[in-house]
Design a binder for these strands. Structure first.
Lengths: 128, 128
DNA sequence: CAGAAAATTGACTTTTACGTAAAAGTCATT
DNA sequence: AATGACTTTTACGTAAAAGTCAATTTTCTG
């Protein structure tokens, strides 16, 4: 039961252009099958595109996204490789924690602005 | 008690180039004073640079960072303006919540990878 | 099987966010 | 007065990440 997706189905679903998906293929991030010259995307490709775009929303570059994808590809066999991989995981985790902290800070400042707006509105309604 | 910062003091503190800070000035994000032609940065400028770079780490464009900064500039007086501002705050909050969700998902996948690595390492040590 | 609709490649363009180099001006020390 | 560390403006350059356009296939549909 292989359901294949066409490129435009996916562009519609994810809100990106065909050019973008082809670009990701050129960059080696995805490897859709071919029937003739036409690309056929499987569920796993679709899933991967989701992860790529998630990385993009977080401001990661293509190179960084590639690193993350490589990590997902599953643990290798050899001990040295495993330790290196765990180190890379730790680095990515640090980056993400930094971003999360940045988000919390920004959100809390937005909260302040919001409260200030509400307070000012209340004043205006009473008729300061 | 005006302590001024020079441009290179700030580049060192924040790990950016002078070009970057001048660029942010060109873009109207910061407005350092001048003594002659030389820029003098105050504590408030320094603080603002911190917020700009925080936005940058989160993958916001200069235009988006400008929007956020404009929001911080404090609530305006008029009712219509206030409502518009609260709307913009809500939009930014949505963006940030999306990013936070993206982060949580990515972190949890990294956790899986990490566990898989640990499991594999344990196997290897026992001697599979 | 024709014709429309969709997909392909390739080349060129655009936008963003700075980098870099040139040519001076500023300032504190020696 | 000279050195050295900074700083300025102006201007052109560049890498990343697509967008756009044109010319062809390919595939789907009636």
């Amino acid at each position: 039961m292989h359901k294949y997706y066409t490129i435009t189905e996916l562009t519609r679903e994810f809100g990106v252009s065909t050019r973008t998906l082809r670009f990701y293929e050129d960059e080696g991030l995805i490897h859709p099958e071919r029937r003739g010259r036409t690309r056929l995307f499987k569920a796993s490709d679709r899933h991967l595109i989701g992860e790529i775009l998630r990385g993009r929303r977080l401001g990661f570059t293509i190179a960084e996204i590639r690193e993350i994808i490589d990590i997902y590809k599953g643990p290798p066999g050899e001990i040295g490789q495993l330790e290196l991989m765990m180190q890379r995981v730790a680095e990515k985790r640090d980056q993400l924690n930094q971003k999360r902290k940045d988000i919390e800070e920004t959100l809390s400042e937005l909260d302040n602005v919001d409260e200030a707006c509400l307070a000012r509105l209340a004043e205006l309604r009473v008729g300061s």
